[in-house]
Simulated assay, not measured.
Amino acid sequence: MKTLPFLVSLFFLFSCFLSLVFSLDDLPMQCLDYQRSSLLQLQHDLYYSPNFTFSSKFELWDVKTDCCWWEGVTCDAFGHVIGLDLSYKNISGSFDSIFDLHHLQHLNLAGNNFNTTLLSYGFDKLPNLTHLNLSSSCFHGQIPVKISFLTRLVSLDLSNQDDCYRIYYHFLDPHNGIYDDDLLPYELQRPLKLENPDFKTLIKNLRNLTELNLDGVDISFHSIKWCKTTSLVLSKLQVLRMSNCGLKGPLCSSLSKLAFLSKLFLGGNPISSLPPNFLEISSRLVSLSLANCGLSGYFPTEILLLPKIQSIDLSANYDLMVEFPEFPSSSALRILSLSGTYFGGKVPESIASEAELRIKELAKSFMPAIFWILCI
């Protein structure tokens, strides 16, 4: 009989513990003082800079309110800042204070005008970071080795730094003309680069990555083994974007080891040819872009018939021939771009008759064409 009161007491204590745990989610978040100080210092060091010109101090946050409720700031139940999103704010200046937010998991500075290098920033001080987005923010120079220390990263986006430099040159042009990319200095065509560390050094510890976007980053230095390195190290990868990176081909057959890869974008690199087992690699793909990759010969027709593929871009491969198969009604393909390629045979009736598909633009057979299959 003595065990019954004991069990009742134990059940009561367990119930209290559960109530305490679940109540944490209901507690109002209150920013910790030192976290607030770091954010205020950050606001002091930043300023609005549309079109690379100083405009005004950055005053996004109301200092009279709790910092956990500030725009772009996310806190956990204990008042630690775990998310900071300052994307597309037209800001410039220093963001050193961010690296005092040691609990940070998500950092997004995309779409800004920093116009600086990344070498002086302490990315290694953010060991909990899982998502880092620095795309289209006018960074240039060497990608720092400290980013390779972020072993918990799931998503890394350093892409398209050249976009804002093109805007900058357009803005400075007194005639408001359009600059030819060939006339721009090489470092402005690909502002970010991987030399020391090289690509292998950057990713060797980032084994948790599921998404990697390096579009426009110069990886031409020691890039011969980029494909094999990616296949061996980034086994969890789902999305790989490395367009216009100066990669050397051909693609390696070991890409088939990326069992979760669903999106592959490699346009603008001299890939030249596909491995014999590319059909095996692409069988899991939803989106594929090999535009302007110097491909020639016949493109494997079977890839157009894969059950999961929804989007294929083969444009600007001027020596590539694509022959249309008879598409089944169950085909998932919705976008097929063949601008600047050759395609043979007549348009299958399955395309023309399929109720949910329509042809937007199609030139004559065997002529360079833009061919889109779009969902109505």
Results as ranks from 00 to 15, higher is better:
residue 3 T to M: 14
residue 19 S to W: 08
residue 25 D to A: 15
residue 27 L to C: 13
residue 27 L to M: 12
residue 35 Q to P: 12
residue 35 Q to E: 14
residue 38 S to N: 11
residue 38 S to A: 13
residue 39 L to I: 02
residue 41 Q to S: 14
residue 43 Q to S: 11
residue 49 S to E: 10
residue 51 N to I: 12
residue 59 E to L: 06
residue 61 W to H: 04
residue 62 D to F: 00
residue 65 T to Y: 09
residue 66 D to V: 05
residue 70 W to C: 08
residue 87 S to I: 04
residue 88 Y to Q: 15
residue 91 I to E: 06
residue 93 G to D: 02
residue 97 S to P: 07
residue 100 D to A: 05
residue 101 L to Q: 00
residue 108 N to P: 00
residue 110 A to K: 15
residue 113 N to M: 14
residue 114 F to R: 06
residue 114 F to G: 06
residue 119 L to K: 09
residue 120 S to L: 14
residue 125 K to S: 11
residue 125 K to H: 09
residue 128 N to P: 01
residue 131 H to P: 03
residue 131 H to F: 08
residue 132 L to G: 04
residue 137 S to M: 04
residue 140 H to W: 05
residue 141 G to S: 01
residue 141 G to D: 02
residue 143 I to T: 07
residue 144 P to S: 12
residue 147 I to F: 01
residue 148 S to F: 03
residue 160 N to C: 07
residue 161 Q to L: 03
residue 162 D to P: 04
residue 165 Y to G: 02
residue 168 Y to E: 10
residue 181 D to N: 13
residue 189 Q to M: 09
residue 192 L to R: 00
residue 193 K to F: 05
residue 206 L to K: 02
residue 211 E to Y: 08
residue 211 E to T: 13
residue 218 D to M: 04
residue 220 S to Y: 03
residue 221 F to I: 08
residue 223 S to K: 05
residue 226 W to P: 05
residue 227 C to W: 13
residue 227 C to Q: 15
residue 230 T to E: 06
residue 234 L to M: 02
residue 235 S to F: 04
residue 238 Q to C: 03
residue 242 M to Q: 07
residue 244 N to P: 02
residue 248 K to A: 12
residue 248 K to F: 06
residue 249 G to M: 01
residue 249 G to P: 02
residue 252 C to M: 03
residue 253 S to A: 15
residue 256 S to H: 08
residue 256 S to C: 09
residue 266 L to Y: 08
residue 276 P to I: 12
residue 279 L to M: 06
residue 279 L to S: 10
residue 279 L to I: 14
residue 280 E to M: 11
residue 284 R to F: 01
residue 286 V to Q: 05
residue 290 L to R: 01
residue 294 G to M: 02
residue 303 I to P: 03
residue 303 I to W: 02
residue 308 K to M: 00
residue 312 I to Q: 05
residue 312 I to V: 15
residue 312 I to M: 01
residue 314 L to G: 04
residue 317 N to W: 07
residue 325 P to R: 01
residue 329 S to D: 15
residue 332 A to G: 00
residue 334 R to S: 10
residue 336 L to T: 00
residue 339 S to P: 02
residue 340 G to L: 03
residue 342 Y to F: 12
residue 342 Y to M: 07
residue 345 G to S: 02
residue 349 E to C: 07
residue 349 E to S: 10
residue 351 I to M: 06
residue 352 A to K: 11
residue 353 S to C: 09
residue 356 E to T: 15
residue 360 K to F: 15
residue 361 E to M: 09
residue 361 E to D: 08
residue 366 F to N: 07
residue 375 C to F: 12
